[in-house]
Design a protein around this nucleic acid. Sequence first.
DNA 1: AACGGCACCAACCGCCAGAAG
DNA 2: CCTTCTGGCGGTTGGTGCCGT
Length: 305
Amino acid sequence: MMKELGREEIRKGPWKVEEDEVLINHVNKYGPRDWSSIRSKGLLQRTGKSCRLRWVNKLRPNLKNGCKFSLEEERVVIELQAQFGNKWARIATYLPGRTDNDVKNFWSSRQKRLARILPQSKSSQQIKHCVPVFHQVPTLEAPKLSCSMEEESSSSRPQSCSSSHIDDTGMIKMVSLPDLINSNLPNYETNLCQFDFTPTEYQSQIPFPHIPQPQQEVPLSPESQQLVAKLGDPNFMDVFGHEDASGIGLGLTFFEQDGSCPEQSDKPDIFDSFPLDVFDQPPLDAFDQPPLDLFDQPDASPSEW
DNA sequence: AACGGCACCAACCGCCAGAAG
DNA sequence: CCTTCTGGCGGTTGGTGCCGT
């Protein structure tokens, strides 16, 4: 996969181990910057953009390569997507070891799945004004999803998962996925649309859930560990390793204590609980501004980690 | 065993904003 | 200012492996 660009040949496609080593070496020496110089120096026949992407998505330390999203992570993605929209890089800031690409892939694959599960969903156009319930999805302090960790370990039935809907009194109720699919709640969508929404009220009534801040100490992926060890620079991690964005943990831990990924198995996906179309909604203006203290931390883009 | 559908992932593309000249 | 370059980001695509039929 070579491409002519003037006299230079630009390499594309999968990265070789040797290329990774060259790239890591460069970052080791100069830091995660000057990507275009990698090519101009003749180190790699890759564009600067390609080098940066490779570093950010695969080579930088502390990535959770090969780990499926935990339920907590899924929850955070849902919450933050509700608030920020498709700002994957920003969302990834709150998920230690995850890249914007990871989040993006995760979200789009769930979208596809939901599209299959709920083909009868209303068009986005039709439910444009039904945003409120979309924002209730993040309210995970409210009634707990029935698919708790404990239940999952004993039963991996996605059917046990539930979602929220608005009942006649305007209260949020949990709805099982089969109910949704089987249309046992004929007024489900109608009720969604009738919910009288005022952002201020909503904000005061439904607290924004605890979003975990990126952790400071995140274990290296085996791949990175191997390469770093190979390069043998003891200061490597000191320079680039422990700056996962703002770095103040708020209590949720995405890693097991031994640094491994949490067991993934085939836990039901809480995403499965929501109607497809609700995910198409843009964030409300009222939520464009992060709630209060949430973003006091300096804005760190994933590429700065 | 073969096939098709699906999920997941890596990487590219295009657009945009900011910096530098 | 204007232009060019570079990096960042979101959207999209193509490859691969798994799983059910």
